[in-house]
Amino acid sequence: MPNLEQTLVYKWLNEVWNKGNIDIAESLMHENATRHGLGDIDSNLPGPEGFRTFYANFKKDFTNIDIQMEDAIKEDGIEAVRCTVHALHIPTNKEVNFSGICWAKCEHGKIKEAWNSFDFLKMYQQIGLLKLSESV
């Protein structure tokens, strides 16, 4: 298993999300990179420019974002990181905690394509936007 800190996905999550350094996106993401699993952004502009839309929208609603990366796998240009997101939902002042996996195809030191799978259902439940019925 690789050293977690040596993966590009770790650097992306730590710099862009934990440190709020969106300006590093151009140096970590290919200009034509595609993303999956982030909702409407999947059909928008490719690369860092398209990602900035998702990032700005998420940051309008959440602050104190802290992503803890637990595991990483890196082989033949593919990286996967398992993580937990902690943040504060600004409109409700509620803390959220949910897990996720980022899987990325990397070429020449940049993310070329990324698949994101986060437990947004749990996040929506924690901020009160979704309630699941207790009866089945």
Rank of each mutant, 00 (worst) to 15 (best):
N3K: 15
N3Y: 15
L4Y: 09
L8T: 07
Y10Q: 09
W12P: 03
W12S: 05
L13E: 12
E15T: 15
N18W: 05
N18A: 05
N21A: 07
I22N: 09
I22S: 12
I24Q: 15
E26Q: 13
S27I: 01
S27K: 09
A33K: 06
R35H: 14
R35V: 13
H36I: 09
G37P: 02
G39P: 01
I41P: 00
I41E: 05
D42P: 02
F54Y: 14
F54C: 05
Y55N: 11
K59V: 12
D61C: 10
F62W: 04
F62T: 03
T63W: 07
I65G: 08
Q68M: 05
Q68D: 07
E70W: 15
I73H: 03
I78V: 11
I78P: 04
R82M: 06
V85W: 10
H86C: 04
F98N: 04
S99N: 15
W103F: 15
A104C: 10
H108C: 04
A114P: 04
W115L: 13
S117F: 12
F118R: 09
L121N: 08
M123K: 00
I127P: 00
I127A: 01
L129W: 09
K131L: 01
K131P: 00
L132Y: 02
L132F: 02
E134N: 03
V136E: 11
